[in-house]
């Protein structure tokens, strides 16, 4: 580290600090405030202590939503990460194909999330959607409105459609930064395709891959808009993930206390992962 110690640098950080404090700290304080109080309306609040937290931690509804979110995140990772790597490995490295691939692949990332939901809602419908129609024409009994399994499949395929490109672009960026000499040496050494991947490409993209895994984990753990548009959390509660449940509770039923307690538990989980993310990142950075 050759950075100079200069506490005046705080003044340069101050605008960011104030802005983020305004848009993060104050709202967070409100949430903490709600989580420890009870209300009967009319803006009268009573101290409730850890009551809401205990209620949350003993509520089946919370744990079910949590389980759904975790399962969803792990399925997403299990599909998107290997798929993203395979696609990145087979992307063109030069010529006209590169910008074409990059632009087309980045496209889903820039579609508003509810439009992503709308696209798949329409695409999957049995009456007017190509996917639903083709599935039924093939004799598959597919209907994401009624069948929980079909709803899950639809939401997962939609997320793969929406976010695999992020993994691809990250891995691709990591792959193109490997010097040619490594590939040449591997050829000379008679390495197989798998050995090249295992001993050259994978170690070199380890860092970006880590970022991809953690980003995808956290973003899928927080997913709200897309499944809400497609399934609305149903059928039943089968696709009610944590954030959908949270918004239902806070905005739909106006149960501020439980919602706030849930928010805080939720936020702490995210914080834990952020911390792991940050630690691993800074460690892998110092290794080089």
């Amino acid at each position: 580290m050759d950075k100079t110690w200069n506490n005046k640098a705080w003044f340069m950080v101050l605008p960011v600090l104030l802005l983020v404090a305004f848009s993060a700290v104050i709202p967070l304080m409100t949430v903490v405030n709600y989580s420890v109080q009870d209300t009967f309306g009319n803006n009268q609040f009573f101290w409730a202590g850890t009551e809401w937290f205990e209620e949350m931690l003993h509520s089946d509804r919370f744990w079910q939503a949590m389980a759904r979110s975790l399962i969803f995140s792990f399925v997403i990772l299990a599909i998107e990460i290997p798929l993203g790597i395979v696609i990145a490995l087979n992307m063109p490295r030069s010529g006209w194909g590169v910008p074409v691939c990059l632009v087309l692949m980045a496209l889903p990332l820039l579609i508003p999330w509810n439009v992503v939901g709308t696209i798949w809602q329409v695409f999957g419908r049995v009456d007017i959607g190509l996917l639903g129609y083709v599935m039924n024409a093939l004799g598959v009994d597919y209907n994401y409105v009624n069948d929980p399994l079909d709803a899950w499949v639809t939401v997962i395929v939609m997320d793969v459609w929406h976010w695999t490109s992020l993994v691809v672009l990250l891995c691709y960026a990591g792959l193109v930064s490997i010097p040619d000499a490594y590939y040449q040496a591997a050829k000379i050494d008679g390495a197989s395709r798998w050995s090249i991947f295992r001993h050259i490409q994978l170690p070199k993209i380890r860092r970006v891959l880590l970022i991809a895994v953690l980003l995808r984990f956290m973003d899928s753990f927080m997913i709200y808009t897309e499944p809400f548009v497609v399934t609305g959390g149903g059928p039943g509660n089968s696709t009610t993930f944590l954030s959908i449940d949270l918004v239902k509770m806070a905005v739909g039923q106006f149960d501020l206390g439980p919602a706030a307690a849930m928010s805080i538990i939720y936020f702490l989980i995210i914080l834990l992962f952020s911390w792991v993310f940050y630690t691993v990142m800074t460690n892998s950075g110092s290794e080089r």
């Binding site: 010097p179 000499a181 490594y182 040449q184 040496a185 000379i188 050494d189 008679g190 390495a191 197989s192 050995s195 001993h199 050259i200 170690p203 070199k204």
Partner: peptide, 24 residues
């Protein structure tokens, strides 16, 4: 062929690096 800049397989030990072209 030996290149201008060192190419080693980061994840392997020194021994395995040398054994790599033979094992392949």
């Amino acid at each position: 062929q030996v290149f201008q800049f060192p190419v080693v397989y980061d994840t392997m030990t020194v021994y395995d690096n040398l054994a790599f072209p033979l094992r392949n």
